[in-house]
């Protein structure tokens, strides 16, 4: 029993990193995704083309490889030593993880947002234009709130995937929950740490489902 409680305590300490990666990635990748979506729809063909390549590469290569590239790239390619560099309280390996995740998830979010924005009827833009709203007002007051409602189910999908993807941070030796579980399992010669970690992930995603369901319901007042 004491082994189980120590397992819980140690996994919970790994949970900080898991949650850290999760929340920071959402914080950065959602606004970035919106920006990337705008770039993808840009009338400037060069911008649209570059953004298209970015999305293609981010979606077409493994996230694990991207993480390694963000972490080792600066040194291997340019001789810049960042590995020992800490940003505030965060080790560079953690910072690199968040950068890698954010760049990757922004690409997926961008395509979801683009789908939502392009599904908006042109009449909404026309009505806004006639009423005198400028482009920014039209986007933030009229279009975006409706887009949020449309894309929420797809966003929920990505957010749930992100929870599980945080385990990839182990390639940069970030001691997030999954790394912890692996270490514990081998030292205890037991699958219990894996099961406990599984429960942790599942509970997190359960909470996400509840939160996102509420968010969807809160927007049910119109159709």
């Amino acid at each position: 029993m004491s082994q189980l409680s120590s397992t819980l305590v140690q996994l919970a300490s790994g949970l900080r990193f898991t949650l850290g990666i999760f929340f920071l990635t959402l914080l950065f990748s959602i606004p970035l995704g919106l920006l990337v979506a705008r770039g993808r729809m840009s009338k400037n063909k060069i911008v649209a083309g570059l953004v298209r390549i970015y999305i293609s590469v981010m979606r077409g290569t493994p996230l694990m490889l991207q993480l390694l590239l963000v972490y080792f790239g600066p040194y291997y390619m340019f001789g810049v030593k960042l590995a020992d560099l800490d940003v505030g309280p965060f080790k560079y390996r953690f910072v690199a993880t968040v950068i890698g995740f954010s760049l990757n998830y922004a690409a997926y979010f961008a395509e979801i947002f683009r789908g939502g924005i392009q599904s908006m009827p042109v009449g909404q833009y026309e009505a806004a234009q006639i009423l005198g709203f400028n482009k920014a007002q039209t986007f933030f007051r009229i279009i975006l709130p409706q887009v949020v409602k449309r894309v929420l189910p797809s966003v929920t999908n990505e957010v749930i995937t992100l929870v599980k993807d945080t385990s990839l941070a182990q390639v940069l030796a970030v001691t997030e929950m999954f790394t912890m579980a692996k270490n514990l399992a081998s030292s205890q010669v037991s699958v219990v740490p894996f099961i406990v970690a599984g429960v942790f992930y599942y509970v997190m995603n359960g909470i996400i489902e509840i939160v996102m369901n509420r968010a969807e319901k809160s927007m049910n007042y119109y159709s």
Partner: peptide
């Protein structure tokens, strides 16, 4: 252009009200 737009209104066939 903005000034001129304030001088007229348009009613659409399919309303185009803001649903939210």
């Amino acid at each position: 252009l903005q000034e001129i737009r304030s001088k007229f209104g348009l009613v659409f066939q399919n309303f185009n009200l803001f649903p939210h």
